[in-house]
Design a binder for these strands. Structure first.
Lengths: 341, 341
DNA sequence: CTGTTAGCGCCTTCAC
DNA sequence: GTGAAGGCGCTAACAG
């Protein structure tokens, strides 16, 4: 229609060489009129680039991830990439998902919460396939990674609870396939130990990062006889802290007077008046952007040195933590101002 | 390596014809050993099928969508489709996103919350491109659609509030580009009118389905002088109801004693002890599955008659609604049991 | 049952 | 500055 060859059209559409202004105009007009849409598939076949990035999320339903998705997606879109989204939750494991993404010839994969032992991740790294781990790392795998300083966060929580005089502290863990859960808890435990406070086995629950399990675990903890019942619960993510808070409410247990609760992540919801949760802030948006950016860089150059970006974590004291209740039922003073440390 | 032709390999990998068991075995072995991954791109070029489905979401951050995404994604995965995910929020409009998806040669598009005037949707339907509208419909467009009975839901809310004796009722709308907001409010208004209760202009706010705007709107409403201040607020989605609830708490306004709040959607969170929100249930998961299923069917057969599936909506009375406060400050009785009507 | 052949729509080199 | 030709990896006919 423009009276030119395919090659010329290709050139104007991809800035792939010199084209006379007049020709360029004619081509663009024809494109317009025909409503021509270049076929990315065919292009991908020859360029070996799809401008597609796989994103594997462990549970979209956790409010942490939508925030992350939004920010990463935005940056990727700006850089001309689209996301092939997979929620790993109940479906196939990393392995199967990865296979699908590779078939699809995505240019890279963003793992939002890989598991520590992930064989898929390991294999991809060996093959020098562009991937980025966000939020969690994988043991013994060197690749682009974006995390926060989870150990520091865990220590800060412990110190905060110790300062408030808590001795019987419960913990709701994620699961041990997650570096986040492990790091937060290890540091937490270490800090308690250095104050000679022990974390009793009966007060440690596995919550799998899930609301419902944390809810149940908390209910169980709260039925322990008074002398063994925890005065504080540290949940390794906010979603589980919400479970704990709600369980406490269901049991008519006053927070923070009778029970302190701490979360981790500082998802926007945690600041809502309904919760005012004491938690550890991770710079979510920054991390999401950094992760997406790393991936794009990696795709551009497969052989640059892998980089790990560690973001700081900050304890945010809100209103779900207070001094440990004394045996007598005097009502303890309650923290009111929001402080960052 | 298996000593056969490409064609044969193709046949064993796609059940594309008869293959001798022995040959099949040899091929599969070779595939295994070579770690061969078929190139979906090349396949797509010839079959004109990518097994990719575009999903356009208006705001992943609204807890409504992750639930939806999870369920739809699950069904699509089962049927062998992957999702190309786009969050429409701050980025390009439908138009641009659609263009990208078409370039990518997705087999179909799932719109999670299209806008009423969406030209993109209209154009796609004209071109007989497989799309499904979920949650919202588009005026004058006939295509596969999955919605709930929003009008009935709106009426039910109105009746509930009227029965409780509310007269000064505020409304926090979404925006008028959404069929959901419009239908819920129209029906709500009609029902009030038939009880001779008027919806005053000063009590109608636009919340854009956003938490923050609903929060601000509620604060404004609650600063009105007592005689003009609403005794109940109907938010057209749960996210905004959470905003209202939190704003009420920030203002030390007791819910439901001094202020009733109603939402819409019944996202899982709405049942949490922290909220116990009176709301309208939509069978979220069923809708998500139905929508995905419709899309797959449509892709299989472009010329089947378009179908609209309307799911029922159910008022769930929880603990954020109570009889309208009387001028005197006697504390009104408060609903405690969860009832469905 | 299996191999051969001809594209799918595009980009890229190489002439002109 | 532009066109012709080849090929990306695969599937779909058609032979045999």
């Amino acid at each position: 229609m423009a009276g030119v060859s395919q090659a010329t059209v290709s050139r104007v559409l991809n800035d792939g060489g010199p084209v006379a202004p007049a020709t360029r105009r004619r081509v663009l007009e024809a494109v317009q009129q025909l409503g021509y849409t270049p076929n990315a598939i065919a292009r991908g076949l020859v360029t070996n680039r799809t401008q597609l990035v796989g994103v594997i999320v462990s549970d979209v339903t956790n409010p942490f991830y939508p925030e992350f998705l939004e920010a990463s997606g935005h940056l990727l879109a700006e850089r001309g990439f689209r996301m092939v989204f997979h929620n790993a939750a109940k479906h196939e494991g990393d392995d199967e998902l990865t296979r699908l993404l590779l078939e699809q010839r995505v240019d890279g994969i963003l793992f939002l919460s890989a598991e520590l032992e992930s064989a898929a991740v390991r294999r991809l790294v060996e093959r020098r396939f562009p991937i980025v781990l966000a939020n969690r790392y994988v043991d013994g795998v060197v690749c682009d990674t974006v995390v926060t300083d989870n150990r520091r966060g865990g220590s800060a929580v412990a110190r905060h609870l110790l300062e408030l005089g808590h001795k019987r502290i419960a913990v709701i863990a994620g699961h041990d396939r997650a570096s986040t859960s492990r790091d937060r808890l290890d540091a937490f435990r270490d800090e308690l130990a250095s104050a000679a406070v022990e974390l009793r086995e009966e007060l440690v629950a596995e919550g799998e990062f899930r609301y419902d399990l944390a809810y149940e675990a908390t209910r169980r903890l709260l039925t322990l006889p008074v002398g063994r019942r925890p005065t504080a619960i540290f949940c390794v993510n906010d979603l589980m802290a919400f479970g704990a808070l709600n369980a406490a409410r269901a049991t008519r247990m006053r927070v923070p007077e009778q029970l302190s609760v701490v979360g981790f992540d500082a998802v926007p919801m945690s600041g809502w008046e309904a919760f005012r949760l004491t938690t550890v802030r991770q710079p979510l948006t920054d991390m999401a952007v950094a992760a997406a950016d790393l991936l794009v860089e990696r795709i551009r150059d497969v052989r640059r040195a892998p980089r790990t970006t560690t973001f700081p974590s900050t304890l945010i004291v809100r209103e779900t933590t207070a001094p440990a209740p004394r045996r007598t039922s005097r009502r303890p003073r309650r923290a009111t101002v929001e402080t960052k440390r």
